[in-house]
Simulated scan of single mutants.
Amino acid sequence: MKYFEEIMSERKNRIEARKDELIRRSLLSEEFLEMIQKNKRPFDLLMSYYQCAVMEIETKFRVLNQEYSLEYDKNPIEGIKTRIKSYDSIVRKIRRKNIPMSLTAIEENIKDIAGVRVICSFPEDIYELADSFLRQDDIVLIEKKDYIENPKPSGYRSLHLIVQVPIFLQKNKKMVNVEVQFRTIAMDFWASLEHKLRYKKDIPADQAQQLQEELLACAAQSAQLDNRMQEIRNQLVSRADKGNQS
């Protein structure tokens, strides 16, 4: 009987905690929407700055890819994806980081509203391309996180850069924060799958744990595949160079 009462009490506490969280989220969302309504034009303008910054970064990588193609007969970039954070994502970040509800605070504290993901052929291409990108004198590096050399506990691998890029307006220029992620095709495939599975709420705890272990094993296999493909590419390049020299 006591055990049953403890279970019911624990369940009641969880329900109450969930209610409080839902109410807090609702209030915050309403507060955020109210702030947006009062500052609609400035907010839309801020979002347009991020969109312009994304276009600037994307153009830089397309130019680099073209240069590599002409000079080295290779295309290190397999694809480029861009995004601007949704209202919901911005609200979640505000809540998680306890950011004041103002446009200035959002701009100063959320560095990844604008995002560019560069999908490369091989791991070495990632570092070579990132170095070429950062050598450009109008790019300011704010933060670098190398999850390829030091993967996350989940197995996630990627190179993340937070940079500032200038956008040129009618009367002045403005430095805008952009997050740039570099991944191989294998890294991107794994991250996409892990993201989809992470948000499935109806998975029992024991299955979720097993799934996480499977994903971690897949991440290790993905890293091995990247390394093997890199070695094959290096061997082909080495043979081609020897053939040209002879």
Rank of each mutant, 00 (worst) to 15 (best):
L45C: 04
L45D: 10
L46T: 05
L46D: 00
L46V: 09
M47E: 01
M47T: 04
S48K: 15
S48V: 00
Y49R: 13
Y50L: 05
Y50Q: 09
Q51F: 04
Q51D: 13
Q51Y: 02
A53P: 03
V54T: 10
M55A: 13
E56V: 15
I57N: 08
I57Q: 06
I57E: 13
I57C: 14
E58I: 01
E58Y: 01
T59M: 08
K60D: 07
K60E: 05
K60F: 06
F61L: 11
R62M: 14
R62Y: 11
R62H: 12
V63E: 10
N65D: 15
Q66R: 15
Q66M: 05
Q66I: 03
Q66N: 14
Y68G: 03
Y68N: 12
S69I: 07
S69Q: 11
S69T: 09
L70V: 07
E71C: 02
D73R: 14
D73F: 15
K74E: 14
N75P: 00
P76G: 05
P76S: 03
P76N: 01
I77C: 10
I77Q: 06
E78F: 07
G79Q: 04
G79I: 01
G79P: 00
G79R: 13
G79S: 13
I80Y: 03
I80C: 05
I80P: 01
I80H: 06
K81V: 05
K81G: 03
R83V: 05
I84D: 05
I84L: 13
I84W: 04
S86G: 05
S86L: 04
S86C: 02
S86Q: 11
S86V: 06
Y87F: 15
D88H: 14
D88P: 00
I90D: 04
V91R: 15
V91Y: 08
V91K: 15
R92L: 09
R92E: 15
K93N: 10
I94L: 15
I94Q: 11
R95N: 08
R96G: 05
R96N: 12
K97F: 12
K97N: 14
N98D: 12
N98E: 13
I99M: 01
I99F: 02
I99H: 01
P100D: 11
M101G: 03
S102F: 01
S102C: 06
S102G: 08
S102V: 01
L103H: 12
T104K: 14
A105R: 08
A105F: 04
I106G: 02
N109V: 00
I110A: 08
I110T: 04
K111E: 04
D112K: 09
D112R: 00
D112V: 07
I113W: 11
A114E: 08
A114V: 04
G115Y: 09
G115W: 04
G115D: 06
V116K: 10
V118M: 06
I119G: 01
C120E: 02
S121C: 10
S121G: 08
S121V: 05
F122M: 11
F122H: 14
P123Y: 04
P123S: 07
E124A: 15
E124V: 07
D125I: 03
